[in-house]
Design a protein around this nucleic acid. Structure first.
Lengths: 202, 202
DNA sequence: GCCTGGCCGTGACATATGTCATGGCCAGGT
DNA sequence: ACCTGGCCATGACATATGTCACGGCCAGGC
């Protein structure tokens, strides 16, 4: 009746603290730890835990990418995403990646153990306040090309570079950026990037 | 012989996990918890712990501000700063604020208990890799006015707005921004902001 | 078939941004 | 006293950015 879990979290101190916390639960056993996305993938196939608890912010493939990768590769267990930032956009991404649970680190620690138990028996667990925020946020107003261009602009590149990378005219790139800026109510390319990232639309 | 400590950390799950971890140490007793800067100040004067473990990123006054506040107000205990981001610039600020220890959450959890014990008896503890990084990184190359302008530019404002806020000509603002961009090796105002923030120079 | 609406791509044009040369001011060295 | 070097401030100039009006293309409704 014990649940075998894996914890993936890049900050060593936090990871070990979470392990210490969960080891206090008699019916939960931590069978694997991972400090980055690649290690998480390797550990999951090696130890096949019942539940994988994944942080989003990790070196290498992030928690959401790990989740979808596991889903495609026939990993039998469940996935819970735990994240620092409350970016509701992550929720949708996590769900489409096949996660069964989504928690914030702002939540009480007891919620984590509870979520692990419920997910292990097939339920879905989502932080209620986060779910409400995600609903209120809705879908992205950006078209495919606009999100392409905006993601390409996220690393402070000039228009000419973006145009070269996407094989477009610089005028076209400017046009897509302008449309994005207006749709998002931003006053800048930089502000548009920030808004879109915060809402999880990139 | 037990060390009485306080933990200030805004993410509930992480805070409770750290408490659980430290409660496992027989000679350490957690006498107070705080979820933000104001609460940390109140709890410190109420419970006067031997060591206050402060996260930097908190609502209200951040960990460094709390540390300097405690130092000025005759708080008798020691302070350890624990932070998420490896921004070596924080190290100097923490030390001038009167902290006795500085750790990253990337460090192993055992280091935290060890640091608490050593700080309690009057030693200073600094993460060695972080100290090296801080040394290697050196001081900010930016002048006072340049950091002013760059911080003002951090929220994607136009030059005219920055100029108005700082009571400067727009040409002057552009000049300071240009100097910052060149000194930081950036190609953009946005990139310059990001570099400076990452290095802790804002 | 025809229209309609949305998305993509493009170039002209106004505006914002980044660079440069210049001058005033002050602290420190000689 | 005099120079020197650094910081601040400013305006001219080239370039990058954002906005606009236009066409082509395709899917869906009539």
């Amino acid at each position: 009746m014990t649940v075998r879990i894996m914890i993936a979290e890049d900050q060593t101190m936090v990871r070990q603290a979470l392990v210490a916390l969960l080891e206090l639960e008699p019916d939960i056993e931590v069978v694997a730890e991972a400090a980055d996305g690649d290690e998480a993938l390797a550990m999951a196939v090696k130890h096949h835990p019942d539940v994988a608890v994944l942080d989003i912010e990790m070196p290498g493939p992030n928690g959401i990418e790990v989740a979808s990768q596991l889903g495609r590769s026939g990993f039998g267990g469940k996935v819970i995403i735990v994240t620092t930032f409350d970016r509701p956009g992550y929720l949708r991404a996590a769900m489409t990646a096949g996660a069964s649970g989504f928690l914030l680190k702002d939540a009480p620690a007891a919620d984590l153990a509870a979520a692990i138990r419920r997910v292990a028996v097939g339920e879905r667990v989502v932080d209620p306040s986060l779910a409400a925020a995600a609903l209120a946020q809705g879908d992205s107003p950006l078209t495919d090309r606009e999100t392409d261009v905006l993601t390409a602009a996220a690393n402070h590149d000039a228009v000419a570079d973006i145009a070269a990378r996407l094989h477009l005219s610089s005028g076209t790139v400017r046009n897509h950026l302008s449309a994005s800026i207006q749709k998002l109510g931003a006053r800048n390319r930089a502000e548009a990037v920030e808004i879109a990232q915060r809402k999880g639309w990139l």
